[in-house]
Amino acid sequence: MVLIAIIIGCAVGALIGMNAPIISYTYSGYLAIAIVAALDSVFGGIASTIKGKFDMVIFVSGFFGNAILSILLTFLGEKLNVDIYLAAIVVFVGRMFTNLAIIRRHYIDKWVNRNKEKAE
């Protein structure tokens, strides 16, 4: 059910994105940061699902909140002439790696356990 929703959502999103107008180069930097923040939220969501601590409200608010906040911080950095987006990228990508590691370990454990059961 969820998997179908994800696939349909991705397909629709891809169609919308392909047909959307091109954003000017000046704003594509903000958009990139927003994407990184959103991806971080997605991986965080998956990780928390694995842990069984998934909360819909936290996930949605984190998804949009982080994106908007990172855009605002990048904008502020532009105004202050400080590359704040670097810090955002470091934090988000670092968390993404952590979450990915959690997901990887979970599935490896699952796989190893299944092999053991088969062997027994």
Binding site: I6, G17, M18, L39, M56
Partner: peptide, 21 residues
Amino acid sequence: TVIIGLICVVLVSVMFMQFKT
């Protein structure tokens, strides 16, 4: 399910826009 689907729509559409740009 609906919310996750919507989020997928938003994320992927924005990503594709960025790819195109």
